[in-house]
């Protein structure tokens, strides 16, 4: 077995920073650095502060989805519904704002809606004994349908400036007004989504490595029957994992819709695949029991940078899909070789 399998316990600085004990993570990190160097050489604009911030923003959505996805994948499941739940949550938040709620409680409603979708997934999987793939595929359609139905498939705009702060604001932003009346940005600041991602990542790693529920998430994915016989409440553990995944999809939806200051019911299609790819590239095993938040963060950045870098180099969106598909297959293939006796 590889180093990655024992990293479930190593919650220290090294497990949050890239390149901890895991060989897989190290190789993923090397890939990430190679990508950065490669794109920096091929495009001048890539290696700039502004583009760095754009990447941070883009990655934060994949990263948030990826954290929830990692927990679900460690239990041995999968959550195909996060892209649709993201859209539904954003729409619910926007409708709540339109109904007169202040922005913060309105976004809370959106996140709750996401958590409810996740809990529904968990209940279908544990009570009705439906495989996660099928249960969350169902939710993928249900949440998307709901989002389209309650909006009439029309984007909700005119949400006010406050709605855009989460997605567009930044900490330590320095702006100076020039004599001609246009603002000049001296330092763009650290975007709120990036800060949010960091906080959620740390919280997620803490949950997985330092709390009983995290230990049980690993145990459930490692050997479900053994865990049940050992007194682990396997069903409740799964329910938690899917609920967290749903809530984080809701949070990601709010970040995304806030960035656009518009709620798009058709937003987030295929995002679940980015999230799964991020987790798998980061070393999570689809057969369960293995995965780390730090690995998933590296995976999310690999995908974010790939997308951004290919855009900057003028590669078409179609080719991008082909490249990312190959990267995912490659990552899993390397994982298979590594685990072969």
């Amino acid at each position: 077995m590889s180093d990655a399998t024992k990293s479930y316990k190593s919650f220290d600085a090294a497990s949050l920073l890239p390149g901890g004990a895991s060989i897989h993570r190290l190789s993923a990190l090397m890939t990430l650095l190679l990508l950065v160097v490669g794109f920096a050489l091929s495009s001048q604009a890539f290696f700039s502060v502004n583009n760095g911030l754009t990447i941070l923003l883009q990655t934060s959505v994949i990263g948030l989805l990826g954290i929830g996805m990692t927990m679900v994948i460690i239990t041995g499941g999968i959550d195909l519904s996060v892209g649709s739940v993201l859209a539904l949550s954003g729409v619910v938040s926007a409708l709540a704002v339109k109904a007169g709620l202040p922005v913060v409680p309105a976004m809370g409603c959106g996140i709750l809606a996401g958590a409810a979708c996740g809990a529904f997934n968990g209940l279908v999987i544990t009570r009705l004994r439906i495989p996660p793939f099928v249960a969350t595929l169902g939710m993928m359609l249900i949440a998307r349908g709901l989002a389209l139905q309650i909006t009439g498939a029309v984007p909700i705009s005119g949400l006010g400036n406050a709605f855009g702060i989460l997605g567009n604001g930044a900490l330590f932003r320095m702006v100076e007004m020039r004599p001609n009346g246009f603002p000049k940005v001296i330092f763009p600041g650290i975007p709120y989504p990036a800060i949010l991602l960091l906080i959620v990542a740390i919280a997620g790693a803490y949950l997985l490595h330092r709390r009983q529920i995290g230990r049980h998430i690993f145990a459930t994915g490692s050997n479900e029957e053994a865990s049940r016989l050992s007194g682990v409440r396997v069903d409740r553990t799964k329910l938690y994992a899917y609920t967290i995944s749903g809530a984080l999809a809701g949070l990601a939806g709010n970040v995304l819709m806030s960035r656009l200051v518009t709620a798009q019911p058709s937003e987030g299609v295929m995002y679940e695949l980015d999230a799964i790819a991020a987790a798998v590239i980061g070393g999570a095993s689809l057969s369960g029991g293995v995965g780390t938040i730090s690995g998933t963060m590296i995976g999310a950045f690999i995908i974010g940078i790939l997308r951004n870098g290919l855009n900057m180099s003028g590669v078409s969106a179609f080719i991008q899909q082909i490249v990312i598909g190959l990267v995912v297959i490659g990552a899993v293939w390397i994982d298979q070789i590594r685990n072969r006796p």
Binding site: M1, Y8, S222, N223, A226, L229, S230, G289
Partner: peptide, 8 residues
């Protein structure tokens, strides 16, 4: 079967 969680 011993009922052990292999990855732990």
């Amino acid at each position: 079967t011993l009922a052990l969680a292999d990855h732990l």
